[in-house]
Design a protein around this nucleic acid. Sequence first.
RNA 1: GGGGGAGUGUCCCGAGCGGCAAAGGGGGCGGACUGUAAAUCCGCUGGCGUACGCCUUCGUAGGUUCGAGUCCUACCUCCCCCA
Length: 414
Amino acid sequence: MPKSDFLRVFEERGFIHQCSDLEGLDALAASGPVSGYIGFDCTAPSLHVGSLLQIMMLRWMQKTGHRPIALMGSGTTRVGDPSGKDESRKVLSEADIEANKNGIRTVFDRFLDFGSGPTGALMVDNADWLLGLNYISFLRDVGRHVSVNQMIQRDSVRMRLEREQHLSFLEFNYMVLQGYDFVELARRFGCRLQLGGSDQWGNIISGIDLGRRMENVELFALTSPLITTASGAKMGKTAAGAVWLNADLVSPYEYWQFWRNTEDADVGRFLRLFTDLPLDEIARLEALGGAEINEAKKVLATEATALLHGRAAAGEASEAARRTFEEGTRADALPTITVAEADLAAGIGVLGLFVQAGLMSSNGEARRAIRGGGLRINDTAVTDEKAVVSAVDLAEGAIKLSHGRKKHVLVRAG
RNA sequence: GGGGGAGUGUCCCGAGCGGCAAAGGGGGCGGACUGUAAAUCCGCUGGCGUACGCCUUCGUAGGUUCGAGUCCUACCUCCCCCA
């Protein structure tokens, strides 16, 4: 049983997959505040649920008396992490990377306290030290300490070699750069720990080696398990795309719905990982059987949404869901679009309207959905593709469009 | 540099004698059943159009053909072997 609050909480909640030196880290954490970091790629304008686990780890670090560092990887994103990928993807422009970084960073304010004390969170960008590197100097200062012998022992590399698959020098170097990040953070902020997903193990370990050789400092690695749903699906992907964390991409209501639709078998695990609720409360919720487990799912949804979007928004989402699904009445907090009053007066074709509402991506899809009985207007199934929606359909100022049982959008004139 | 193999429906994998909007999976969405769950069964899974229909898709660009994913040429990318 770990002595430090930090590792005890991590263990109890299921954040630990692998650690380079559990006892050593435990002793370090028990002796005082530790700085630990996680790197985030800038490949998209927002993080998605897949990164939430990492963010929660930073959060718990802080809550247990340590200093979390969020590293924006705008430098390494210029190279691209090959881990777990068959081939490299398209290269992002520097402007895109910069824009992505700005989109991503806003989320952290919700989860971390960037105060100035010893446990105040930090946000840094590895572009600050990577972009200015000189190739020859880097080789002399850093490259001399990097052991290729050890690097080729790493799982990711060894597997490629054994299977005689191509491994480019570029891919090989990503590991070195990430390792160098760790050393740089150790130098600048006394950072001793790097956290990450289990796929990052090799990259993190190379940083530990580098730290020992260059700075003679002992660094630590702690990875989290890969989170899949009980049915084996990767987390956070839906047909509409990833479940983004930024509110302009996925509204609090939609975010709440995402969690509400958790599989039974995942509820307990997700409560531990993605909420702050105390463990005894989670144990109680998890024990609920049959349809009662739905209560636990609502708690999960509200707590997770509150963390990201605030308690008020979570409450609204919850209330909107209650009205929509339990009372069968309309909730004004549902996602809403506005159409010009004149257009509505003139009448709008159903197909186009569903596309405008974002529920359908093309007229053809809408047509097919209607044939399959999947679309409803004001809770009445649409049977005619040629139907026209107009102001007559307004009920209490809005028209409710539905795709399936779960997705609803309100249309208002304006 | 030489030799061999491969790139298919913009989610993935993957069939494809010259007539193909292109088999089959997986995934996803919808319907039924449920508890906004899972499992199961059924349907859908290029764009436009009310419609006979039109348009765009098989790495890229040309060519041969009434007609090309399918044949030819060049190029690009990837993989393997040899140098």
